[in-house]
Write a protein that binds this DNA or RNA. Sequence first.
DNA 1: CGTCAACTGGACTCACAGTACAGTGGGGAA
DNA 2: TTCCCCACTGTACTGTGAGTCCAGTTGACG
Lengths: 203, 203
Amino acid sequence: MDQKVDTRTRILDIAEAAVLEKGFEATSIDEIVAGAEISRGGFFYHFKDKNALARAMLERYIEVENALYDDLFARARELNDDPLHCMLIGLKLLAEMLEEMPTGHPGCVIASTAYQDRLFDEGVRELNRQAILGWRKRFRGMFEEIAKVYEPREPVNMDALGDMVSGVVEGGLVLQRALREHNSASEQIMLFRTFLKLLFAPK
Amino acid sequence: MDQKVDTRTRILDIAEAAVLEKGFEATSIDEIVAGAEISRGGFFYHFKDKNALARAMLERYIEVENALYDDLFARARELNDDPLHCMLIGLKLLAEMLEEMPTGHPGCVIASTAYQDRLFDEGVRELNRQAILGWRKRFRGMFEEIAKVYEPREPVNMDALGDMVSGVVEGGLVLQRALREHNSASEQIMLFRTFLKLLFAPK
DNA sequence: CGTCAACTGGACTCACAGTACAGTGGGGAA
DNA sequence: TTCCCCACTGTACTGTGAGTCCAGTTGACG
């Protein structure tokens, strides 16, 4: 079924590259079809419409992103057992990774779909929402571990702090795109890291 | 020339509301034309194409946003002369204002255009860029004033810290849109405020 | 040998952006 | 009073891209 590289995956690969480069709306089906060397009929055989494509892309993105976070913080944990230092190392690794990514980062697809809202159906929007809620849960858990060891210097809402990881990444990517600077996102993450250092500083 | 409400302004008003609600691409010219009660010819008399409309909208947005910041921090300054407290009060006011805005905040147009990139011409992109650079300058100046009085607890890049205001707002608005929660942006600003309190805390 | 999944290819419809241009109504300058 | 021009109206057209429909082809497998 997928000896060479199955067509569906090839469509997603081509679409992914195009969307990261110029956005979803600016990417035409004809273009994807040409890139994947299939017919228009072939495209619609795999995806009911552009919405179905968006959904499939988002699903893949979110999986990749989650795997990336898993890997990042697993590596950080190997380097240091302390939850705070693990977090700080993980964020450093994330910042470095973002600087090395020339084109774009999966995260930006979240913002992209969020801002083109009505172009997508409820399924896509809900997927988006669940992804962010998943990251909230993930990071809130980590922050709670940290808070057990280091009492926060100021009271903070742990859900909001969890969201701040996603928020800083998304915001950084917006800045990066608009400014045409390639390190804005990593700079913003490093500032967030400074925040955490101060927030959980031992007395 | 503009006794009732001149047509150009009326077009911009209608377009603004529609774009804030559902995004630029999802807003058709026919729809704007119907809303403003003019003919298609009338629209193209005022705007060469959709790009020109985007540009005019962005220009207006950026002006409004700048006026808003001027006003906010002027009010903050009246309440407290100290640069740090002025900043903290200003951010509080901003957070409150964001919570009261039901639909959307001008800022989101920045992210929106940043992510639909190729849909717009270089003029629009450059406008976007200059707006963010303007805010960087504005907030960097304020942070430098603060740093003169309160030495930062950790070394920070002042440009990046200036950008962080825009980044946190943009990121917060992305979260807010995606999560369908109305207070994410204000929560994120309040966390950023906590960061500043810790960063510039007297020893 | 038949059948089913995975396509190809072509001919549609529809919506929307954008062009072109002829005409019109009203207010100010000559 | 006339004329002119600004701010439109209205119609008709082109082009592009999404999406539909469907008849036909090809190759793997039972």
